[in-house]
Amino acid sequence: MKILVAVKRVIDPYAKVGPLADGSGIDTTNVKFDVNPFDEIAIEEAVRQKEKDPSIEIVAVTIGGSECTEQLQKALAMGADRAILVETDQAYDPSSLSKELEAVVRSESPDVILMGKQATDGDNNQVGQMLAARLGWPQATFACNVQFSGGKATVSRETDTGEETLELPLPAVITTDLRLNEPRYIGIAGIVKARSKPIDRRAPVTPGGTRVRSVKVESVPARAAGKKVASVEELMNELSSRGVGA
């Protein structure tokens, strides 16, 4: 079985970021980049599946500039077998990304595509579903448990009201949610081993481009701090004066 894991390079999800002064984008001065945390969960899931079934091959893929090899290195250090960089300076939106990924899928013919439910920069939550639709493959989004057996995937997924379990024929697209697993700490051995694993650089085969174009990025209007109260009684008085519980 072959698992393709799609990975995105994002601004450090724990960094506090602001807009550029002219509002043309996010100010990334002195901000580090990392693997999108939801994609890291997808890599971890692929590696755990491989630990159960060593015949699994894990291929990590990303689309972007040559700096994205850092994120592929991390995927390889976690346990991916090889990596693909679709090397491009083009801008993409989720729709054009799904088309470029589709081309990679057609050339690799994986049984399963794993990726994060969304990236922590754009927060779009679109690429996995768009890719599944383009391929005509079934999908399970927001996965919190994944099992493979007999050419099928059994996926428990988070829903608005709880959880459900789906059975999908393979090939299929699975997007990962926060509670699927906790990604491993990468040891020095993994990093050393990753250096000898291949990264296949290829040119994009689609034109890319964005039909959803960023016009402006701005800070969230601040909600003014209110007042501190000293007791529940004072709190109730304040609430009453605002029309609550009167």
């Binding site: 729709s95 679109q126 690429v127 579903q129 768009m130 639709a133 989004t141 927001f142 829903t159």
Partner: peptide, 23 residues
């Protein structure tokens, strides 16, 4: 916006080759 709509409508956008804006 909800988990169920993101699940289904992004797939719909894929079918229609339509651009999508979430949230």
């Amino acid at each position: 916006s909800a988990m169920r709509s993101k699940d289904a409508l992004a797939r719909l956008a894929g079918h229609l080759d339509a651009p999508m804006v979430t949230d």
